[in-house]
Design a protein around this nucleic acid. Structure first.
Length: 110
DNA sequence: GTGTTGACCCCAA
DNA sequence: TTTGGGGCCAACA
């Protein structure tokens, strides 16, 4: 059993399911996959997800406060915010506005 | 093989 | 309100 690779795939699949104009959190994804407590792994997985062939919208994943913690890992520091605003999400000072409303909970929606 | 780091989260003071 | 400490586990040096 190769659970590590499987976990990454599950993360990618779940993130792909996030609707346009919505965002989710690392913790929610981790918990949804039964890895509650290991939220860092989701972030680590995202770092490896920069590959365009994976087609993973990592910009829709933020930390629990709605802060764009991963923006510095993009090619440009503003790319993540640009992508979010293009989808109708307001981002001010790396902070998602109306985060509670924009939040997409996989545990509830699925 | 060991030690440190990190796109995180939770709780206490 | 802001800080600090613990936990979690893969990736990296």
């Amino acid at each position: 059993m190769k659970n590590t690779a499987n976990f990454y795939e599950q993360v990618y699949e779940l993130v792909k399911l996030v609707p346009k104009g919505r965002v989710t959190t690392y913790g929610a994804v981790a918990k949804s996959l039964g890895m509650s407590g290991s939220s860092r792994m989701v972030g680590t997985a995202m770092k490896h997800a920069h590959d365009p062939s994976l087609n993973v919208p990592a910009h829709r994943v933020v930390n629990r406060t709605g802060l764009l913690t991963g923006k510095h890992h993009y090619q440009t520091p503003t790319e993540m915010q640009e992508l979010l605003e293009k989808e109708g999400i307001i981002v001010i000072d790396d902070q998602v506005q109306d985060f509670e409303r924009k939040f997409w909970n996989p545990l509830v929606e699925l």
